[in-house]
Design a protein around this nucleic acid. Sequence first.
DNA 1: GTATGGATGGACT
DNA 2: GTCCATCCATACT
Length: 193
Amino acid sequence: MSSVLSAPRAVLGADFFRQAVTEAARALIGVRLTVDGVGGLIVETEAYERTDPASHAYRGPTLSNAAMFGPPGHAYVYRSYGIHWCLNLVCGPEAGAAVLIRALEPTDGLEVMRARRGTENLRKLCAGPGSVCQALGITRALNGLPLDQPPFELLARAREYPIANGVRIGLTKGVETPWRFGLRGSPFLSRPF
DNA sequence: GTATGGATGGACT
DNA sequence: GTCCATCCATACT
């Protein structure tokens, strides 16, 4: 599908991140996410919230998940399987909720991302939460940082997008909860819906 | 103090 | 489809 956009986009404000986490996860599809100017359009997200057994916030605040209990509109970055980094956007009217960024359609800084990922394949640059962080250079150094300031930039979607939704990926708890959202038909999803 | 297992991705059969 | 690299917070002894 086309990703061309010419209209200027607004930076996402505090109100965006205060909406219910599932609404935020849906509304983030089509938003342009960059870190130091490198990134693309968000095409896949998952929602996690406080009372959700699959969420890192489920057992309450700890040192490592503290960002999830901070104000919305900030990043929560964690290490996954000892190898990868995963980026969440803290969202919602209540503390302890966040949206996992699972895939982007790469648009900005393609050569930087190709070098970081070690592949020329556009479809594989940002397909999966670990890949997104590798391509964008996201590590724990960005944990807790506000999303409306550099190096982050989040620009509102240019139009409405058709949304697919389904169950979340890779979980052992909360496996039935259909809180995975994606751009329907996008070739840049980590997996089809 | 020690064991465990996870919101993964890539290599391989 | 299966396997497993590699970190570290948490659970358990």
